[in-house]
């Protein structure tokens, strides 16, 4: 399963308003679910953040959790208009956020595989300074596709 196929245009927000970490996570969750489902997901994601920031460095954060509120892997992407505080491990502000929610049981552990893949791809995007390049969600998906292909060739 490639990452690009798990992305959908309406869940890629390239002009996300920076703000408090909680608020930004909430905004991204709302691209996926509404109502009490969204509330549950936000609570679980914030509990995950309390264990240690998912800001992995180089301007990237990957908030993630499993939740009863979803029945398949769901991903939302946000790029903030300005870097924002995320308590990242390198203490640097964050501008690219991949948010991933997985169902409690997923055969083949697609969740951790996808999570690992996103970490790899996001790091390449940061290293090659590609984060600010895409202007539309379509261009973003194309870029992800490209980075993913390059990684596959390298491995």
């Amino acid at each position: 399963m490639n990452l690009a196929s798990l992305l959908s245009k309406d869940r890629i927000i390239l002009s996300l308003k920076p703000g408090k970490k909680e608020k930004v996570i909430e905004d991204l969750v709302y691209a996926i679910k509404k109502g009490t489902d969204a509330e549950l997901i936000v609570s679980t994601l914030l509990k995950r953040e309390e264990l240690g920031s998912t800001g992995i460095g180089k301007g990237i954060a990957i908030p993630h959790c499993r939740s009863l509120a979803v029945d398949k892997l769901e991903i939302a992407v946000g790029r903030t208009t300005k870097p924002m505080k995320f308590n990242a491990i390198d203490k640097k502000p964050v501008s690219l956020i991949f948010l991933i929610i997985a169902p409690p049981q997923d055969p083949g552990n697609q969740y951790l595989i996808t999570l690992g893949k996103i970490v790899q791809i996001a790091k390449v995007m940061a290293k090659k300074k590609l984060i600010s390049k895409p202007n539309t969600p379509d261009e973003f998906i194309t870029l992800i596709n490209q980075v993913e292909k390059d990684l596959k060739k390298r491995n």
């Binding site: 549950l40 609570s43 679980t44 509990k47 264990l51 959790c65 499993r66 509120a69």
Partner: peptide, 13 residues
């Protein structure tokens, strides 16, 4: 229900 669901999510975490 909300408490129970959150408990379950946290156990998965």
């Amino acid at each position: 229900e909300m408490h129970l669901k959150l408990l379950f999510d946290l156990d998965n975490l």
